[in-house]
Design a binder for these strands. Sequence first.
DNA 1: TTTTGAATCTAATCTAGATTCATAAATGTC
DNA 2: GACATTTATGAATCTAGATTAGATTCAAAA
Lengths: 209, 209
Amino acid sequence: MDTTSRNNMTKPVPEAKSAATRDRILGAAARVLSLKGYAATRLSDIADLAGVRTPAVYYYFPSREVLITEVMVVGQLRLREHVETELAALPAGTPPMDRICAAVKAHLQVELDLSDFATAVTRNSGQLPEEVRARLREESGAYLALWRDLLATAKAAGAIRDGLDLRAARMLVMGALNWTPEWWNPRQGSLTGVIRTAQSLVRHGLGTP
Amino acid sequence: MDTTSRNNMTKPVPEAKSAATRDRILGAAARVLSLKGYAATRLSDIADLAGVRTPAVYYYFPSREVLITEVMVVGQLRLREHVETELAALPAGTPPMDRICAAVKAHLQVELDLSDFATAVTRNSGQLPEEVRARLREESGAYLALWRDLLATAKAAGAIRDGLDLRAARMLVMGALNWTPEWWNPRQGSLTGVIRTAQSLVRHGLGTP
DNA sequence: TTTTGAATCTAATCTAGATTCATAAATGTC
DNA sequence: GACATTTATGAATCTAGATTAGATTCAAAA
């Protein structure tokens, strides 16, 4: 997925091969991480999946930790970007609760369908060594802030039930979403089904009747 | 926590010392696991916390994996037992949605306050090697079944909104609960506050208006 | 006392991976 | 088609931790 990206219209085919391999390794790392978790992710697994020998990884990344950190940062970034994009696409004047539901949908799409990177972040955020966590803090803070805004706006508009602890409510909702990779599987239920259910839960759980 | 247990009224003080140390090691393992995660849990951390040298662990457990497996099994068991106990304590005729809310409360109590073992399970379930996971499957299946029953009963009683995918709804709720150890901290909010919010979310999220 | 077995310790050993490095292929350049 | 540079490799090396081996301590039994 998305192996090319960068340098779109500049030099014809600069270090195309190189960039491609680098992306292949990064993508492989994301996938292994999302499947096996930080503990069990060996550099050799990543290399195998990328179709390259282990030392080749060092041609592109100085260490395992740097590679993993990049996966996490990219994952967190993509998650936020996708959600922001979807929100931005909403017509002006969309009611705040509908915006929240759109964010729920977008989050689940990235998490479950679009990006191993995003899954890697949520499935491993609790297990990372402190340095990686620190490196991630800023970006994940931005994502949390996005949701904080979403709820605060809805609250201000009177769309959220009274007496709810907003922080706790927000974290509970995000927890429900973040836990989905632990149980959801495309073979036993459609993605749109999960999205619909999550939206319904959130709308009725948070909203005024 | 529960250092003695077994052999209550037989021999005066049999292998009391031994059982105590074993429990100390097990408890230390639960705590380290719940704090640092499977990846970062070293036998030496466990030994340190238990006040013993690393090899002493091997006097009680044949391997790191067996030790960790036991922590997980105990954690999953305690989680279910506590929830079952709380449910059993409810007066007969308690409405199904109130029973669900009681389960929410019980789950959060064990998870956040009572047992490092329970926290260890939920924070690491996704990272475990296949053998441990297999060993855990039966017990965690029992817990899932408990919740399935809770929801099915409520549904049958007409206490749950129509058009909700029950499996997805159940897993989303459990996800919200299981994710709490990732963010909740006794210093920035009372446990009862989180419980109240979670109950409110679940009641309105699942229930008929 | 002496003996014994449980409980621990210190000092190795062993091993899976991460990391390094000197060199081989490939690719592009003139 | 020889030269330079970029990519990738095989064959070491290094290291953190798990595991094992062999004392050592000590209380209680004999």
